[in-house]
Simulated assay, not measured.
Amino acid sequence: MRLYAQTPARRCRQVLADLIAATLIYAAVKLALAVRDAIMRLADPGRKAEDAGTSLSDGLVDAGDAASKVPFVGDQLKKPLRSAAEAGTGLADAGRSLQDTVGQVATLTTVALIVIPTVFVLLLWLPPRLRWIRRSAVTRRIAAGAGGADLLALRVLAGPPRELAALPTPPGGFAAAWRRGDEQVIADLAAIGLRQAGLRS
């Protein structure tokens, strides 16, 4: 299986198209990761809220434990401190929830920014490349088989006549020369057929 043409002009176009496709996909990935980093910075307030809530809750729990040791009124002092500690836990939970939400948004955005451009590039780039690979394989198989030059010459005769203008017109025309089996004309036409497929004889 040949991935690139043998003719320089077509090979250069194929390499250029491959480089452009790879560059666009790389750029999409880089952009998606940069956007993800920017979105993840929105989670900083959530982290600060979680840290503050955790610190507040731990401090109030410690204060409640200390207050509970006060004779006679310890339990009464401990209850409001425990309630306030629960509020701190709620603040920490809210901070964690914000971080989770931001993380999910960042992940979905990153996936979308990678998948959508990559699929678009592949749809534009891959089908022509696969078509050329298949066509070149078929053309090589035809050329290598019995009567391959005749078939390639016939394919050229059936196609657009623009490349025939570069060849000297045989007596009676190319079709007549092909019918009578003119080996030179058939070889010239077959060479054009290979060249059209980006191959050399």
Results as ranks from 00 to 15, higher is better:
residue 44 D to A: 15
residue 44 D to H: 07
residue 44 D to R: 12
residue 44 D to V: 11
residue 46 G to C: 05
residue 46 G to L: 01
residue 47 R to G: 06
residue 47 R to P: 02
residue 47 R to I: 00
residue 48 K to G: 00
residue 48 K to M: 08
residue 48 K to C: 03
residue 49 A to S: 09
residue 50 E to L: 06
residue 51 D to W: 01
residue 52 A to L: 09
residue 53 G to H: 11
residue 53 G to L: 08
residue 53 G to W: 07
residue 54 T to N: 14
residue 55 S to G: 08
residue 56 L to M: 15
residue 56 L to S: 08
residue 56 L to E: 05
residue 56 L to R: 04
residue 56 L to W: 06
residue 57 S to N: 10
residue 58 D to E: 15
residue 59 G to L: 07
residue 59 G to R: 13
residue 59 G to F: 05
residue 59 G to Y: 01
residue 59 G to Q: 12
residue 59 G to H: 12
residue 61 V to H: 12
residue 61 V to M: 11
residue 62 D to M: 12
residue 63 A to E: 03
residue 63 A to H: 09
residue 63 A to W: 08
residue 64 G to E: 10
residue 65 D to C: 11
residue 68 S to E: 11
residue 68 S to W: 01
residue 68 S to C: 04
residue 68 S to F: 04
residue 68 S to R: 15
residue 69 K to A: 12
residue 71 P to T: 11
residue 71 P to F: 02
residue 71 P to N: 09
residue 72 F to R: 08
residue 72 F to D: 10
residue 73 V to D: 01
residue 73 V to Y: 00
residue 74 G to Y: 00
residue 75 D to G: 14
residue 76 Q to N: 11
residue 77 L to K: 03
residue 77 L to W: 02
residue 78 K to E: 14
residue 78 K to R: 15
residue 78 K to S: 10
residue 79 K to Y: 07
residue 79 K to P: 00
residue 81 L to C: 11
residue 81 L to H: 10
residue 82 R to F: 07
residue 82 R to V: 10
residue 83 S to T: 15
residue 83 S to P: 00
residue 84 A to D: 13
residue 84 A to R: 12
residue 85 A to H: 08
residue 85 A to S: 15
residue 85 A to K: 09
residue 85 A to W: 14
residue 86 E to M: 14
residue 86 E to K: 14
residue 87 A to P: 02
residue 88 G to K: 12
residue 88 G to N: 11
residue 89 T to V: 12
residue 89 T to Y: 09
residue 90 G to W: 10
residue 91 L to N: 03
residue 91 L to Y: 04
residue 91 L to W: 06
residue 92 A to Y: 04
residue 92 A to Q: 06
residue 93 D to H: 04
residue 93 D to F: 08
residue 94 A to T: 05
residue 95 G to H: 04
residue 96 R to A: 10
residue 97 S to H: 13
residue 97 S to A: 15
residue 97 S to L: 11
residue 97 S to N: 14
residue 98 L to P: 05
residue 98 L to F: 05
residue 100 D to Q: 14
residue 101 T to Y: 07
residue 101 T to S: 14
residue 103 G to E: 13
residue 103 G to R: 08
residue 104 Q to A: 14
residue 105 V to F: 12
residue 105 V to L: 15
residue 107 T to I: 06
residue 107 T to F: 10
residue 107 T to N: 14
residue 108 L to K: 13
residue 109 T to F: 02
residue 109 T to E: 05
residue 110 T to W: 09
residue 111 V to E: 03
residue 112 A to I: 03
residue 113 L to V: 00
residue 113 L to F: 10
residue 113 L to N: 03
residue 114 I to H: 01
residue 115 V to K: 07
residue 115 V to Y: 09
residue 115 V to D: 04
residue 116 I to W: 09
residue 117 P to W: 01
residue 117 P to I: 03
residue 117 P to L: 03
residue 118 T to Y: 02
residue 118 T to Q: 09
residue 118 T to C: 04
residue 122 L to R: 07
residue 124 L to I: 12
residue 125 W to C: 00
residue 125 W to N: 07
residue 126 L to Q: 07
residue 126 L to A: 13
residue 127 P to M: 02
residue 127 P to L: 04
residue 127 P to Y: 03
residue 129 R to S: 12
residue 130 L to N: 10
residue 131 R to S: 06
